[in-house]
Simulated assay, not measured.
Amino acid sequence: MREIVVRALSGIIYVALVIGSILYAKESFYAVFYIFMMLCLYEFKNLIHLSYKWTFVVATLIYLNYIETPTLVSKYLHFLLITSLFVPVIYQLFISKITLTSSKLGHYFLALAYIALPFAMLIQVPFINGEYHPKIILSVFVLIWISDTFAYLVGSTIGKTKLYKKVSPNKTVEGALGGMVAALIGGYIISLYLTNIALIHWIIIAFIVFGFGLLGDLIESKFKREAGIKDSSNFIPGHGGFLDRLDSIIFAAPFVYVYLHIIT
């Protein structure tokens, strides 16, 4: 009983912190998610034995550079950038042992591609034509939460077919489909309230969030499996670490960012 109460309270505090920081002001959004990035880097360091030297400094510089002003002017160059960085990370899912952790250069590449750059692009998501639209990034989080919740509910109820057993034995195809359908329905409902973005675009965003969010979850599971641990940390009692809670959004956010800034 005590564990359930602790899990519920820590979950409520985490969600309240996310929502509150987004809605209060862009400055609180920047500040809280900078702290989240640092905590995720710390947890990731422990997963792959990442060196402290320069990692946090470089991540901070990247993050600060993206505050309201992205590094690259071309939207399509951003797409090429994140694709070229994420493909090697995604490839690690399909090999027996993660190869990028075998060298110091690989460590720094992962810190950039998997943590720093996604957070830097995440804070750009709510900015459309230079104006801060907090409900957009909040809606992306809602889509993530809806997808994860229904994937768990459907998977634990009727899930039988393992999705990728050697990486995440609890995930099922049925659960993934449940999460996808829930995200698409969520995208439709959001489009009824945030009409500045058309329905078709919210549906596509929902699909991006589901697909890349699932990849992010699987990739973090692969890192944890190789490290021999269940959670990235115990910073959020009953939920694990911040990387456990943010693995989906940090992987999906760069693609949502590029898509939003192409269509607007």
Rank of each mutant, 00 (worst) to 15 (best):
H78K: 02
S96K: 13
I62C: 07
E68F: 03
E226R: 12
T101K: 04
I115V: 14
K160N: 14
I19L: 08
S51Q: 08
I136F: 10
H239K: 02
T172M: 02
A151P: 00
I22W: 06
K135V: 07
L138F: 10
I19F: 11
I263W: 07
L81E: 01
N170K: 05
T55K: 14
M38G: 14
I208P: 09
G216A: 08
S156H: 02
L39K: 15
T55A: 13
A16I: 05
V181L: 13
L215R: 07
I12S: 06
Y193C: 12
A31M: 12
L17F: 10
P126C: 05
K165C: 00
P254Q: 02
I115L: 04
G175F: 03
N129A: 01
A8G: 01
F119C: 12
G11P: 09
Y164I: 04
Q92S: 05
Y66T: 03
S139N: 05
P169Y: 03
Y66S: 10
L9E: 08
Y76K: 00
P118M: 09
F212P: 03
F109E: 00
I62Y: 08
S84F: 11
F255I: 06
I82L: 09
I146T: 14
V6G: 07
G241S: 14
K135Q: 06
L80N: 00
A31Y: 10
L243S: 15
S248G: 08
I144D: 01
A198L: 15
R7P: 00
I115D: 04
L72D: 00
F212T: 10
L39T: 14
V87A: 08
K45I: 11
I137R: 09
A183W: 12
P70M: 02
L163W: 05
V167N: 01
L61I: 08
L47Q: 12
A116Y: 11
I146W: 10
F255R: 09
V18T: 12
I189L: 10
I249V: 13
S51A: 10
L39E: 14
I136W: 03
N170C: 01
